[in-house]
Amino acid sequence: MTEARLRDQICRLGRSLFERGLTPGSSGNISLRCDDGGFLVTPTNASLGFLDPALLSRLDADGRLLSGAPPTKEVPLHGALYETRGASRAVVHLHSTHAVALSMLPEIDPGAALPPLTAYSVMKCGCVALVPYYRPGDPAVADAIKGLAGKYSSVLLANHGPVVAGDSLEAAVFAIEELEESAKLYLLLRGLNPRYLTPAQVNDLVATFGLTLPEQGDEHDATSC
């Protein structure tokens, strides 16, 4: 895909996210890795609903601005996901309401922020990690992401919002939308003793779709997310 088409795709999907209320005002940011190793990134203080393809920040492989407007201050967050998840081609970060609310609940397990609610929550999001609160743009959030060692494609930033890496921009957008809907389901069902997917059902998804859950081979139960 040409860079011009990638720029248009960022703007089109950003507008879709904004128009459906998934990230308000000038919140949220998107990045996409280019074939030359550089990146296209949404600018700082830009609304995802009103992006200009020509003003997207073009960075080189070392994160230096080559053209366009100054990039989002969350570049270190995006860079940490690309560094630890080498196959990722896109990263999307939102301030979606239900995912933010989920990140603030005291019972959330940092290693498995969501139980296996639905087949698609497991298939699209995998296990979801929760990292502690850092102010927006704090470079320390990159260290927290790197501490996950690339095991998670979906991460909640406490009191802030979700960030998802994908092998394409479309995949990352679909996954973060699924994460928001799964967080909404969790909040609706909280305290009602809902029926989650069983370990056998999760294992069937893993085997059928070739999923890799972070807890497999670790001390956690592989079906806890």
Rank of each mutant, 00 (worst) to 15 (best):
E3K: 09
R12D: 12
L13C: 04
L17W: 02
L22N: 03
S27Y: 10
N29P: 04
N29R: 07
I30E: 02
I30Y: 01
D35G: 13
D36M: 13
D36Y: 12
G38E: 10
G38N: 07
G38K: 06
P43I: 11
S47M: 05
A54R: 14
L56Y: 04
R58G: 03
D62I: 00
D62Y: 00
D62Q: 10
K73H: 10
L81P: 00
E83F: 09
H93K: 03
H93D: 02
L94C: 00
H95L: 07
T97N: 03
A101F: 06
P106S: 14
A113G: 06
P116Q: 06
T118M: 04
Y120F: 03
Y120C: 00
S121Q: 15
M123Q: 04
V128E: 03
A129K: 09
A129I: 13
Y133H: 14
D138V: 03
D138E: 04
D138W: 00
A140F: 02
A142S: 10
A142Q: 01
A142G: 05
I145T: 04
A149C: 11
Y152Q: 04
S154P: 00
L156D: 05
G161V: 10
V164E: 06
A165P: 00
L169I: 12
L169K: 05
F174L: 14
A175C: 03
E178G: 01
R195D: 09
V202N: 01
N203A: 14
A207L: 12
T208I: 06
G210Q: 07
E215I: 05
Q216H: 15
D218C: 08
A222W: 00
S224N: 12
C225M: 03
